[in-house]
């Protein structure tokens, strides 16, 4: 396996980590105004992800940095091409990050409610836009022979892209609702359970619709074939099992299953892309690939050593931090730090 492929896989891994972790983060943020009916319950919802959301977001920053380091042309074409979409996402993420820290530092209802809606919008917008972005990556966007994006913001808002956005939005929200069933207690736990059960059919239908539509809109069919192999099939079975798991209160397993769906769907997308990183809708030869978009072999080698040492270390201490805060959120003062 060449270094370019290794880095393609590594970036896929970073996106899996990002979508898995930040997926439930976004979900929790979206559900915040609906599950948290009063201030205490809102704080419980926020504190479910309080110690983790920032670390989770770093998966995105690392993925961005890794794309820059390993595939600079991918970074340059995608980030400049999806300009307005990214501006909107950045505004959302900035507001969201500040809101988590600031909302409980002042007491008026207006202040807290305002920041809570910033958290909602700041979670809703990226959860939607990531699906739009991924859908357009596999569908193809207009890229000319010089690797320049020639479309505009509205090029991205095609029906397939929008369906992808709705799919990621609802799957992340479901993932977040199930995460909350593992972290909350009392009446909030019951509300979270009810949301999880209500969200499941919506998320499942949208995700399947997105997959089926994909066979018409992308070259996934020719790439993966009628029998797409184990990865997407298990992704589908995983989300299908969630309803039964929720009904029988096996929420830990339900969380594993939505996580599996997210991880395996991400792998499917990357398998469909390989060896391309951005598909050109104008001419297949103008697509960006792991070869024409990559850094020099030397840089890839240096970065491989860096990743080899530090990725396991990061996984270790992040996992440990989840272990430290594994208990459900109580109403004790120490649990309501935010």
């Amino acid at each position: 396996m060449d270094l370019n492929t290794i880095w393609f896989i590594l970036i896929a891994v970073l996106f899996i980590g990002f979508f898995f972790l930040e997926g439930f983060d976004y979900g929790v943020g979206i559900l915040l105004p609906f599950i948290g009916k009063d201030d205490t319950s809102r704080r419980k919802v926020i504190n479910a992800i309080g110690p983790h959301w920032d670390g989770n977001e770093v998966w995105l920053l690392t993925a961005g940095g890794a794309i820059f380091a390993a595939f600079p042309h991918w970074y340059a074409t995608m980030f400049s091409g999806f300009y307005l979409a990214l501006v909107i996402m950045l505004l959302a993420l900035i507001g969201r990050g500040v809101a988590f820290e600031y909302r409980s530092k002042h007491t008026t209802a207006k202040w807290r409610n305002g920041w809570d809606w910033v958290i909602f919008i700041g979670s809703f917008v990226p959860a939607l836009l990531w699906g739009v972005a991924i859908a357009n990556l596999i569908r193809g966007v207009p890229i000319d022979e010089n690797m320049n994006y020639t479309g505009n913001f509205f090029t991205l808002l095609n029906p397939y892209g929008l369906l992808g956005g709705l799919a990621s939005l609802t799957v992340f929200t479901l993932h977040g609702a199930i995460f909350l069933t593992l972290k909350l207690t009392g009446k909030e736990l019951e509300i979270a359970r009810a949301y999880a059960r209500k969200l499941w059919p919506v998320a499942t239908i949208l995700l399947f619709a997105f997959v089926i539509y994909g066979y018409f809109e992308t070259d996934m069919f020719s790439k993966l074939g009628v029998d797409p192999g184990a990865v997407p099939v298990i992704a589908a079975l995983a989300i299908l099992s969630v309803e039964w798991l929720l009904k029988s209160k096996k929420e830990g397993w339900a969380f594993v299953m939505t996580g599996l769906t997210i991880a395996l769907s991400t792998i499917t997308v990357f398998m469909g892309l390989y060896p391309r990183v951005m598909v050109s809708s104008l001419n297949p030869d103008w697509s960006l690939t792991i070869y024409n978009a990559s850094s020099s072999p030397y840089t890839l080698k240096v970065m491989s050593f860096v990743a080899l040492i530090f990725v396991p270390l990061v996984l270790l201490y992040q996992a440990w931090s989840y272990w430290v805060f594994r208990k459900r959120i109580s109403e004790k003062k120490e649990d309501l730090e935010y």
Binding site: D54, G65, A69
Partner: peptide, 20 residues
């Protein structure tokens, strides 16, 4: 790109996780 990626991997993860 390399120092930026290393910054995220080495530093951002560390500060955000341990701040939590």
């Amino acid at each position: 790109g390399a120092p930026l990626a290393i910054e995220a991997l080495l530093a951002f993860f560390m500060e955000s996780t341990f701040l939590g």
